[in-house]
């Protein structure tokens, strides 16, 4: 016997609402700080290259995750090509978005790395994998040193 008695009237079953009322402030970290300041102030993209194996990381990091050697920063164009994309009709609460968002996995030129970001200025039916895209940044005075300083990537016209 697992329980000796159980509540039979469903109205007597209780549920208590709970909300996590915390918020978080995340530093970009050492490599992130270098990247986002460069993006904010100069509109330029930074990657990092492993001093031992030569793997070029994007997003940049201070260490090579494969051999744990140090890396050095290098400037890249910020352009890339679409490796995969998806069209999302709902937000994370499950509500329909007024306009679907296009997410893309973008291989970054001059690196072994990738970025996941939005695509803009294009309709889903016109997207092809392998398509070349370039970043569209916020105007300099509105940039804050965050990933959202990149508004989206757009196809090369």
């Amino acid at each position: 016997m697992v329980f000796n008695e159980k509540i039979t009237n469903p109205a007597e079953l209780r549920h208590v609402q709970g909300r996590i009322e915390l918020y978080w402030i995340y530093t970009s970290g050492e490599a992130g700080d270098v990247f986002f300041k460069k993006l904010r102030d100069e509109g330029k993209f930074t990657a990092s290259k492993c001093r031992k194996c030569g793997h070029v990381f994007f997003p940049p990091r201070i260490y090579c995750e494969f051999d744990f050697s140090e890396t050095e920063y290098m400037e890249i164009s910020g352009e890339g090509c679409v490796l995969a994309f998806s069209v999302i009709s709902y937000d994370s609460d499950g509500n329909r978005l007024e306009k679907p968002e296009i997410y893309a996995l973008i291989g970054m030129d001059g690196t072994d790395g990738k970025i996941i970001h939005l695509l803009g200025e294009i309709e889903p039916e016109n997207i092809e994998t392998g398509m070349k895209v370039v970043p569209v940044l916020k105007p300099k005075d509105q940039r804050e040193g965050k990933i959202t300083d990149i508004l989206y990537f757009k196809p090369v016209s």
Binding site: G29, E30, G32, Y63, D67, F68
Partner: peptide, 26 residues
């Protein structure tokens, strides 16, 4: 308050332990 992300802090600690032990991450 440290600027490093949790990943970067972990890397520092691991790097020191590896160095002391005379081992490589591989």
């Amino acid at each position: 308050r440290l600027n490093e992300t949790g990943k970067e802090l972990s890397y520092y600690a691991v790097k020191q332990a590896l160095e002391e032990a005379g081992l490589d991450i591989s």
